[in-house]
Computed example of a mutant assay.
Amino acid sequence: MLTRRLALGMFAALALVSCAPAEPPSAPPAPAAAPPPQERTVSDRQLLQAASSGDPGEVRAALAAGANVEARDEHRRTPLLLAALGDHVDAARELVRAGADPDAQDDRRDSAFLVTGVTGSVKMLEALLPADPDFSLTNRYGGTALIPAGERGHVDDVRAAVRTGIDVNHVNDLGWTALLEAVVLGDGGLRYQQVVQLLLDAGADPTIPDRDGVTALDHADREGHPELARILRSR
């Protein structure tokens, strides 16, 4: 269990940097500051509130009143990102129809599509596909949406994400792929077994090691996850 404790310790140390989840070791330049509140019109504020609360009727009304579909709140979150964070699928669909950008990132580098890997919402993922999201876009850890989905054991979301053609072997700034995170940070139970199988079936390379040269199979053996090790050895 030493490897797992070290991995979790790394995440805990990163989290101490701020109240929000930590920045990656090589954080990009901070985005431009959000526009001051006075630059947001009344309809912009109504749209942000409607997206946050998930009211599609109010979203339509605010847009009809001239709200900017890319308005930003104090954390640079767009209406579509707020809808995605709250898993408000109907509101998100209205915003997508209005041309909202699924790749607009906030001051934590979250985007509407990226957060589906955190929430595990397949319905939201599917609602965003007509907006043609950039599947290679990365979060503050340098990872795609697939990596947090694997880490959190979101089986259905992983299944949906790999069908998009997302890079299953992307390595984040911590040196981990979705497969490595599922093995190292998961509990080895049924959900993670399914995630590992889905990733392998989609072309995940089990020989890609972490920064210490340790592969997913090595981690599975070290962590005492025999079923994960069996699945990985079958490749």
Rank of each mutant, 00 (worst) to 15 (best):
A20N: 07
G188K: 00
S26L: 13
G9K: 04
K123P: 01
F135G: 06
P130G: 13
A22Q: 12
L14I: 09
D106P: 03
L217M: 07
Q194S: 13
V171L: 04
A33R: 14
Q194N: 09
P31Y: 05
I147Q: 15
V184C: 01
V195G: 11
D173S: 15
G175N: 10
L146T: 04
N172L: 10
L95E: 05
V115H: 06
S43L: 05
Q194K: 15
G86K: 08
S111T: 12
A178E: 02
V118K: 10
T138F: 00
L137P: 08
L48P: 03
D90P: 02
V195C: 13
P36C: 02
G99N: 13
T116N: 04
V89G: 02
A27Y: 03
L48E: 06
S121W: 02
R76T: 01
A204V: 01
G117Y: 05
A20Y: 03
V196W: 06
E70W: 02
A112V: 07
P56E: 07
S121H: 04
A204D: 01
G54Q: 09
R76N: 12
T207E: 13
D132M: 07
D201T: 13
P226S: 10
R222Y: 01
E58W: 03
F11S: 13
K123L: 14
G153M: 11
Q46V: 00
R152N: 14
H170T: 11
S52V: 02
R77N: 08
N172S: 12
E39A: 15
G188V: 00
E151V: 10
D167P: 02
V122S: 09
S53G: 06
M124N: 04
T41M: 06
N139V: 01
R235Y: 04
